[in-house]
Every structure is written in structure tokens, then in C-alpha cells.
Design a protein around this nucleic acid. Structure first.
Lengths: 175, 175
DNA sequence: CGCCGTGGTCTGTTCATCAGACCAACTGCC
DNA sequence: GGCAGTTGGTCTGATGAACAGACCACGGCG
């Protein structure tokens, strides 16, 4: 459930979904996994979450089959399973709602279909070809509502800086 | 944030969205508002949430412009604002993911476009006419994965029983 | 007038989160 | 091989949120 206990006895798939990804930080971890942030230390720094809680969340997401842990370039990496990738429509819808609700300057981040180079519409469809691409076929880049790099402190960390360059979803950041 | 504090300094619309609807219970309250459950006492009973927390969540959702409180039939009713209705794609996507992940018997609840009587697809579109209807044009009914009414105790409360009959979203339950 | 439902507030307890110290294993690097 | 730094954690004590349940003011109804 979100937050530490469960939504017992609810005959509703939203409740069961929230039992898995509704806890504090869980969806932000999943978002970062879509963006390619897969390493414990990167997540720790980028999210500003305590290590104990991060350990716990990663463990429950792995147990739930949303993430899997593997070795990549000599480090542990937490990457999305097919079930985790299936969260993309929900993550995208929440991002769009957040943009519409809290970002008058426009989306903070844009997503486009790599084969058509057209930005996705609000429901996640490619307006050119009409398909609703999976995360693997989507490229992201900052949008008009993105905060411009603050020139002074806090000096943004290298991982967040690399996320400002256009890149494909699901591809783990290297180095 | 979900859960009591905030996701400070995140330049991400998902984080800002979760600050509003990511707390424990918030999205379940919004779901019930889509289903027509708008009264304090109904929410209290259906969700099994403590009254103090329900009061707090309703207050912050009203403050955030997701719900509005009004008088209806001599009672208070918390209904969705346009901003709250815009959460439908996110709520629908999470329900679909929960169905796919935790309900092998099929969706626990089905949604169809009232003008076409066709069930929505995974991305929320009507397969007949191709539009992505808003919540006001959607009718819901139990699906194959719904738990059949437990014949013995706990005797289900009247509100949940009425939610098993097909009905349109956003229409407050009366009586 | 008494009674019930509605929409809450208040209390004390339990549980989660927090920041930060600490640590074992592994990575280069020479 | 020896040393330092990074990685991926665990453990601690303090803070804050959620819990169940008692309590309460108001309005409607007979």
C-alpha cells in the first residue's frame, strides 16, 4: 500500500496496484528506472532518500517483480522487468497531470516516438502513426517547463546533468 | 509527497503530482469520487480509514483543487473538480496495471464508452470510435475478476453493493 | 423532547521515516 | 601488494504520521 501497511479487503485493482507501487518513493524509483537511473548510489543521491528506506523499497519492488537486480559493468543495477515496463502508461499519465496542474510554462519533460520523432499526446499515443509506443521506443528530453540549470549552488550532480540530454528510455546510464 | 512530507527540489512533474495525490489513501479517495462515492461517512466505511486521516486527506485534496466540497441532498459531498477529473487517465492506467499484475481471472472492473457501449482498451481509448473519453462519458460495471459477493459475513455495506450495479462515473450516489 | 446519523476532533499507541554514523567488499591505481 | 575511494548496504535514536476508538456539536425526525 502506499505507506507501510496494506489496503486490506479492497476488491479493487487500484488498491492492489498501490500496495505495490503506492508507497512513498516507489514510483519515483520506477520513474528513474525508466530514465536509466539504475544504481543504488545514483538513486540515493538523486532522490535524497535515506539509504535504509531505499534499500527497503528496492527490495519490495524486486519482490513484487517490478524491478530485477543484476550486475552491469561491475555494479549492481536495478532494471525494470516486463511488469515494471507495463507501468509506463500510469507513470506517463501522472507526469502529464503534474505538468498540467503545476507547470504553467509547459511540460518539464517531453517524450517522443523514436521512429516518428513526434511528441506523444496526452494519452501516450504517437500523433503521427497512431500507435501507443512502449517505453523502449520512446526518447525523452527536457521541455519548456524544465528548470534551467541553476548557475550557482547547489551544483547539480553529474547524473541529473546527463538526464538533461535527449536519450532513450530504459537504457541504463553508463559510467 | 506521498506520505506526509515533500519531494523537495525535484524538477519533475511526477514528484509534484505525487505531492498532491501520492499520499496514502489519496488516490483511493479520488477513485471513489469517480465511482460516485462522495460522502464522508461512505468513504470512512468503504475505505476503513481513520476519520482523522480522512479529514486531513479530504482537506488537502480540496486545498489542491482536486476535490470541492458542496452541499448535496442536505449532506456534504466531495466531488471532483475539472483538475480532479483530469486524473482519470492516471487512475485508469493504474487500475489496468493492477488488473494485469494481480488479477489472473481478468479485470475486476470494466469501463465502457457510453455512446458506443464498447469497453475501453488498455490506453483508455474506445476501440469503436477511437476517442479517449473523459470520465463523464464512461460507464462502469464489475468484470470477470470481481470477487463474487461473499454470501456470509462480512455482509457488504449498501454503498459497495450499489457500486456493483452498472453506472456512470462521476454521478454521486444518492440516498 | 429524545434519538439517530453526519461530520468531524482528541487521545494514546504503534509504526514508518529521517539524518547520519558505521561497515564489509570490491575497484581501481600504482 | 598496499592504499584509498566507491559501492551497497546496516544500525541508531529522534521525529512525525497513521491507527483504533472515545468523544462531541449539529441537524432532522417523530
Amino acid at each position: 500500500m502506499p505507506l507501510g501497511t496494506d489496503y486490506a479487503g479492497q476488491d479493487c485493482s487500484l488498491a492492489t496496484a498501490l500496495e505495490i507501487v503506492g508507497e512513498r518513493w516507489s514510483l519515483l524509483i520506477v520513474r528513474d528506472a525508466f530514465l536509466g537511473v539504475t544504481r543504488f548510489s545514483y538513486l540515493h543521491r538523486r532522490l535524497g532518500i535515506s539509504k535504509a528506506v531505499l534499500t527497503q523499497r528496492l527490495g519490495s519492488l524486486v519482490d513484487a517483480g517490478v524491478l530485477e537486480r543484476r550486475r552491469l559493468d561491475g555494479h549492481d543495477a536495478y532494471t525494470l522487468t516486463p511488469s515494471g515496463e507495463a507501468l509506463w502508461p500510469a507513470v506517463h499519465a501522472l507526469i502529464r497531470w503534474g505538468d498540467a496542474t503545476t507547470s504553467p510554462a509547459g511540460p518539464r519533460r517531453l517524450f517522443r516516438h523514436v521512429t516518428c520523432t513526434a511528441d506523444l499526446d496526452a494519452s501516450g499515443r504517437c500523433p503521427d502513426c497512431g500507435v501507443t509506443p512502449g517505453a523502449a521506443d520512446i526518447e525523452t528530453r527536457p521541455g519548456p517547463g524544465a528548470r534551467t540549470d541553476p548557475p550557482t549552488d547547489p551544483p547539480t550532480d553529474p547524473v541529473s546533468r546527463r538526464l538533461r540530454e535527449p536519450h532513450r528510455l530504459l537504457v541504463p546510464l553508463r559510467g
